[in-house]
Amino acid sequence: MPLLEARNLTAGYEKLKIVRGINLALNEGEILSVLGPNGAGKSTLLNAIFGVARIFEGKVFLNGKEITGKKPYEVARLGIGYAPQIQNVFPNLTVEENLELSAFKRNGIDVKKEMESIFKLFPEIERRRKNFAKTLSGGERQMLAMARALISKPLVLLLDEPTAGLSPKATSVLLKKVKEIVIELNVSVILVEQNVTKALETSNRVAILVGGEFVYQGNSNELTREEVEKMFFGEKVRQEL
């Protein structure tokens, strides 16, 4: 049984349907990359899984239990961590407080212990632990966002473009961290990415989202960057270029 499953999901905002007929399955211990051009609906897909976007049709299951239509905080307490692309930290709280908050109302979590183990994974933010989050740099913020999502020991981690706006070196470091996390903390990851090469390197499986629908799902080592780009733009455009 897959850990996280979306069946025939159609979602969007208000009256607008942005993603249509999505079937998605995430198995334990794997990294699934969702790739696609701008405006394909990648972030909306994550928001729909999390209950932030509106679901018109279809169902979402976590570990066999239905989570469709649940409030975001309930979904979070059931074991999904989410690091949004923008505004992903509380700027007026310190790094420690940011982390403590995510463990709020979660039973059986020793916050102090968890925080130390998280700080071992992210030594970059450990030295800033007493600082306000608004003083962090872009890369540090992304790491804090990831740490914030991870501290409550989720089963599934959703990462929305964690490398957006980062330098190539920071991107490599961050994606290496993602791989480490999967092994060390035993979570499964859905990774939304723009950087095709890096995403193919990092992930086990790839799903390609174009115009709100999946056009391809499969193992990432079967694909090359050129093939992915062909799918992004359609065959013709590529030939003309």
């Binding site: 999390f50 932030v52 409030k71 975001p72 905080y73 979070a76 307490r77 989410y82 949004p84 505004q87 992903n88 930290v89 509380f90 700027p91 007026n92 709280l93 908050l101 995510s102 709020f104 109302k105 979660r106 914030r148 409550s152």
Partner: peptide, 11 residues
């Protein structure tokens, strides 16, 4: 600070 992020964090 951010009501939506607070919800995402389980508050």
């Amino acid at each position: 600070d951010n009501p939506q992020l607070a919800q995402i964090s389980g508050i």
